[in-house]
Simulated assay, not measured.
Amino acid sequence: MNAHPSFDLLSPYLTKYPQAGGSLFQVYNDIKYSQQWEQIELVELESCNRVGIKGRKPGVETSLYVVPCSLPESISFGWLSSAFASFPSSSIYLAITSEDSSVVYYKISQGIVKPPM
């Protein structure tokens, strides 16, 4: 992991939030190298004890917000509220990682949202 190109950027956060470090490393690399997002920024979510990711998909003008977590973690409404409070958006993506290196992204919106037709 130390030889990976993203290690130097992520290293301070991996040390500060070790329980969420694996998820951050996995999701950041998926967004940057697989999905090739642009203008990626790391955002400390101290109330959630982790780092979130802000960025844009290629060809999209609006920023998206991602909160990495692992499959065994317990997530509460309070935790999600804290994540929402850290981002200026009515929706975030919860990036859930598993031990087999897969990542599943769930779009979570505040309040009741009518599905698109």
Rank of each mutant, 00 (worst) to 15 (best):
T15C: 08
K57W: 05
N29S: 02
P5S: 00
P58S: 02
Y28W: 14
W37D: 10
S90Y: 13
R56T: 09
T97W: 14
I53D: 04
P5T: 00
E38L: 06
G52E: 05
W79H: 11
L64Q: 15
L45E: 04
N2D: 08
I92M: 09
M117I: 04
S82G: 13
A3L: 09
E41R: 11
A3Q: 10
A83S: 07
A83I: 04
L94E: 00
S76Y: 13
F25N: 04
P116M: 05
S76R: 13
G22Y: 03
E73H: 12
S6E: 09
Y13A: 03
Q26V: 12
R56S: 10
S82F: 10
F25W: 06
S102Q: 13
V103A: 02
K16Q: 13
Q35I: 14
I40S: 06
M117F: 05
Y93K: 07
L42Q: 09
V113N: 13
Q36C: 09
L10V: 08
I112K: 15
A20W: 04
K114V: 13
E99Q: 11
G111L: 09
S101I: 12
S109Q: 15
A20K: 09
S109D: 14
D30I: 10
Y65C: 05
S91K: 14
S74P: 02
E41F: 06
N49D: 13
Y106M: 06
N2C: 01
I31H: 06
L14I: 08
S109M: 11
S76F: 05
K16D: 08
